[in-house]
């Protein structure tokens, strides 16, 4: 294939990946921004979203779109609920100590993953897309559903953006992120904001997973990949910067496809991972973010 169409395909793939990544990484970024903790179990919330989508669509039968819409509404709520419970039972009780939280969320990672193994089983299970058509470009074909994933993710992101910037809940969240003590003095129940943020973060990951599961399959070990990618995005975008996260997700999603044109993909993954580590060392505020108040 010529370079032009190749680049076009890489761009399409990059956009799909970026769209899902935006949702997943935004969740991680929110949690880090507001609560100042790293949630290692984030990928498992993603996995739970995909698994729940499989349950729900299987339950409904009939036209796949029906079950899918219900899953898209229900899975984030359920996963958010699980995250909320985890936050109350564990994170709150270690007072959000950054290191204790990491260890605790590693524990949660195993608990969620292995409980899924016990209930859902070890197999990869497909979820039918709500609709399917193939778009034929002159050089190659492409899944129409994937193109719609981009749109759906954009809509969800706009909704999240609206909540964060235009609602009272968002205001409270931003206030807490900006200065926890002051927020508390102004009568904000910081404690409840944290639980809410943790649940929303998990819910966003689950929403991303529901969108992507018809393209991939639900599997109990699928949380690892989105976790690493989200880490990368959040670091490049600047820890805690939401705008940076979105820009970085686009950038990473697009780059990932294009880099693999030039290098062996395994080598490309090595180099990009190393580059990200160096960014975190030498520009901890991220490539685009300004240094935040911490």
């Amino acid at each position: 294939m010529d370079f032009g169409p190749f680049l076009f395909l890489a761009t399409l793939e990059g956009l799909v990946q970026a769209a899902v990544l935006c949702l997943t990484a935004l969740g991680l970024s929110l949690v880090f921004g507001v609560m100042r903790v790293v949630n290692v179990a984030h990928g498992e919330f993603f996995m739970l979203g995909a698994v729940l989508a499989w349950w729900v669509t299987g339950w409904f039968g009939g036209h796949p779109a029906l079950g899918f819409v219900v899953a898209l509404a229900l899975a984030p709520v359920l996963v958010g609920g699980i995250a909320w419970a985890g936050e109350r039972m564990v994170l709150k009780r270690v007072s959000y100590d950054p290191e204790a939280t990491i260890v605790a969320t590693i524990g949660m990672l195993y608990i969620i993953q292995q409980t899924t193994l016990l209930t859902f089983g070890p197999d990869a299970r497909p979820v039918e897309p709500p609709f399917y058509f193939r778009v034929q470009f002159p050089w190659f074909g492409y899944s129409g559903y994937k193109l719609c994933v981009i749109v759906a993710a954009a809509v969800l992101l706009l909704a999240a953006w609206f909540v964060i910037t235009r609602t009272r809940l968002g205001l409270v969240m931003r206030a807490t992120q900006f200065d926890r003590e002051t927020a508390q003095n102004f009568g904000i129940a910081v404690d409840r904001v944290y639980a809410m943020v943790f649940a929303i973060g998990a819910g966003l990951a689950a929403a991303g997973a529901v969108l992507v599961v018809p393209v991939q399959q639900a599997h109990y070990l699928m949380g690892g990949d989105p976790l690493l990618l989200s880490f990368i995005v959040v670091i490049i975008g600047g820890l805690g910067s939401i705008r940076g996260t979105l820009v970085a997700a686009l950038l990473i999603g697009l780059c990932d496809g294009i880099i693999s044109v030039f290098f062996s993909p395994t080598l490309a993954k090595m180099l990009s991972t190393l580059a990200v580590a160096l960014v975190l060392v030498f520009r901890p505020q991220g490539l685009m973010g300004a240094r935040q108040r911490g």
Partner: peptide
């Protein structure tokens, strides 16, 4: 799901 034990021990320890 023997790794479940790993998870539970981690959480219990931290708590």
């Amino acid at each position: 799901a023997y790794l479940l034990v790993t998870g539970i021990v981690l959480v219990v320890l931290v708590l």
